[in-house]
Simulated assay, not measured.
Amino acid sequence: MTGENAILLRTTGLTRKFGGLVAVADLNLEIREGEVLGLIGPNGAGKSTTFNLISGFIKPSSGSLEVFGRDCTGLSPTTISRLGLTRTFQHGSYLRTMTVRDNILIGTVHWLAGASSSQRMKRVEETAAILGLTPHLESIASSLPHGLQRLVSIAIAFATRPKLLCLDEPLTGLNQTEVGTTLNILQSFRRDFGSTILLVEHNMKAVMSVCDRIVVLHHGRQLVTGTPAEVRSNKQVITAYLGSNHAA
């Protein structure tokens, strides 16, 4: 990833108010093609609101959103997702009573328009193989261990082969081995498919290891944007969020 890569998503002055509460204020964010961008901050910093704004689940109070060169301010989640932006949700994005196969198949419905059932199934099986889910395709999603359920959520989103994959705390509740497996999968998305990833995550060791740049939010405002090394050593970030044990 280089600084010359195209900007896939840009927000300008993006703001969301809930009554008298300003959840996100004047956010100027850029995501460049091929990068992994981390979005971090304390609880209540505005991360989830930002995610909902850029994916169309809530509309901004002011400011603008540009996705893949198109003004998407106020557009629906379906419209934005069909452009090539897909997302997961913090507490899982899968249908508990369906098989893993059928869950991933749902991810192909709108994005392989006109494809035959065999073509869709090929995509399902390819996606399962990438995420290590092939042995579990016929399992009911809710019967799987927590770590595999998180991978099912990612598989549904990745089945679309999105231009921009937005992951909302995908590592929550995972053990160290599962975290390593998931990070390797995310790296393979970029290496093998040229995916661009926006990652919201509280696991700082993982964020620092996988992200090219990190945006730090605090009280709904953009505190710092920089490389992991720059963020780790920034005095404002240490004070507001990381703590002295993360200092370089």
Rank of each mutant, 00 (worst) to 15 (best):
I7N: 03
V67K: 05
T177M: 07
E66Q: 06
E4Q: 15
V216P: 00
N52M: 02
D26K: 09
T160V: 05
G84L: 04
D102N: 13
I214N: 01
I106K: 01
N5L: 03
I156W: 06
I154N: 07
M208S: 06
L29P: 00
S153V: 02
T108D: 01
Q187D: 11
V124C: 13
T79Q: 12
R221M: 11
P77S: 09
T50V: 11
K47S: 02
T15R: 03
I40T: 04
E33W: 03
F193P: 01
Q222E: 00
R96L: 15
T225M: 04
A206C: 12
S143Q: 11
G46N: 04
R191Y: 01
G92R: 13
A141R: 01
D26W: 13
Y241N: 09
H146T: 07
A113Y: 00
G114N: 08
K205Q: 15
G20C: 11
S153W: 06
R190N: 10
E138N: 14
A155R: 04
Y241L: 09
F18H: 12
S116V: 08
L9C: 09
I7Y: 02
P135E: 12
A6P: 05
R232Y: 07
T73V: 15
A115N: 02
E35Y: 04
S81H: 14
S209W: 14
V237G: 00
R70H: 11
R123E: 00
Q222W: 05
D192S: 09
P162L: 03
H146P: 04
G19Y: 10
G220L: 09
L83F: 13
R161S: 13
L174G: 02
N184T: 04
L95M: 15
N103G: 04
F68W: 12
L131S: 01
K47D: 00
D212C: 02
L217V: 01
R16L: 15
Q149H: 10
I197G: 05
T78C: 12
A240W: 02
G194L: 07
V200Y: 05
L183I: 14
G194I: 09
A206N: 11
L223Y: 09
L167G: 07
G69P: 01
E33A: 10
L14V: 10
E4D: 14
T99E: 05
T108Y: 05
R10Y: 10
S143E: 10
A25W: 07
A129W: 08
S139D: 10
L85P: 00
I58M: 06
A115C: 04
L242S: 01
R213K: 07
N43T: 04
T108K: 12
N52E: 03
S209Q: 14
M1A: 05
C166F: 15
T227V: 13
F68L: 14
C166W: 10
A115E: 03
G226W: 07
N234D: 08
A159N: 10
K47A: 06
A141W: 03
T11F: 12
G180V: 11
C72N: 06
R32Q: 01
Y241G: 08
H202L: 07
